[in-house]
């Protein structure tokens, strides 16, 4: 398996928050959950690896290419979807797609039609007419139609009902089987129990763990931190909370 994304010593300093020395890597066909409580640094990490913000230090490479110098080539091969973000709410999906496809050299109309049908999306609808789950699916269609090998998704399951969430996780698994790597941030740990191979856990801006989810759960279980991801997260996060409460 080849490495699709490598993040080394990523640091981003804000006046009141620092994302510090984050390192992780992703292989093709793997699903990685980026977890942490609200404000831990998940979105800052995602924005950094998409070059939406300026990092203080660190090295980010995709498919062996440096993000800073080969951003355009890299963006031809990755896709992004933010849970709550939608673009051109009142334009028809077909119109948005007609414009978007002109930017991608590998755009595949056949794949586009196939995924639109699979996700039951209608070109004549506007994003404002779609449910939250359908919006995420629309972003997935756009990414998959230009042959994205890595999907970066910021809280794609938040705001979805349990059935839509479950369907979306099934989609992730099916895509991973086809070799697509998926990095998605979430604070809903049960999503990861169902589909993640790896996790990167960020706590208060620092890397707590990155690697196989199974290994992490076994290791934490041995330390008495919990039986599953939710219990483990609660254990670490509330430990700090209780310390503060006692002060």
């Amino acid at each position: 398996m080849s490495t699709v994304l490598s993040v080394k010593h990523l640091t981003k300093e804000y006046p009141k928050f620092t994302l510090e020395d984050i390192s992780f890597s992703m292989e093709e066909g793997r699903i990685m959950g980026l977890i942490g409580r609200n404000g831990a640094g998940k979105t800052t990490t995602i924005k950094s690896i998409l070059n939406l913000i300026h990092t203080t230090s660190g090295e980010i490479t995709y498919f062996g290419m440096d993000l800073a110098s080969q951003e355009q080539t890299i963006k031809q091969q990755i896709g992004y979807a933010g849970g709550a973000v939608d673009y051109y709410k009142k334009k028809k999906i077909g119109q948005i797609v007609q414009v978007t496809k002109t930017f991608y050299t590998q755009w595949d109309d056949e794949a586009y039609r196939k995924y639109m049908e699979l996700f039951e999306l209608d070109e004549d609808k506007t994003p404002s007419e779609l449910s939250e789950g359908m919006k995420v699916k629309l972003n997935l269609v756009m990414s998959l139609s230009h042959g994205a090998k890595l999907l970066i998704l910021d809280e794609p399951t938040s705001g979805l009902d349990p059935v839509s969430r479950d369907e979306l996780l099934d989609v992730f698994k099916a895509l991973a089987e086809r070799g697509v790597a998926i990095l998605f941030s979430t604070h809903i740990t049960s999503d990861l129990d169902k589909c993640a191979d790896d996790i990167t856990y960020i706590r208060k801006g620092k890397l707590q763990f990155s690697g196989s989810m199974q290994e992490y759960i076994e290791h934490s279980r041995a330390e008495g931190a919990g039986e599953n991801l939710e219990e483990i997260m609660l254990h670490y996060e509330k430990e700090n909370f209780h310390e503060k409460l006692a002060q």
Binding site: L52, E71, Q72, T73, Q76, V85, Y88, K91, F103
Partner: peptide, 15 residues
Amino acid sequence: ENNDILYTVLLPVRK
């Protein structure tokens, strides 16, 4: 209102 700038910078173009 339509997140146009974010949409644009996520495309494979120079910022």
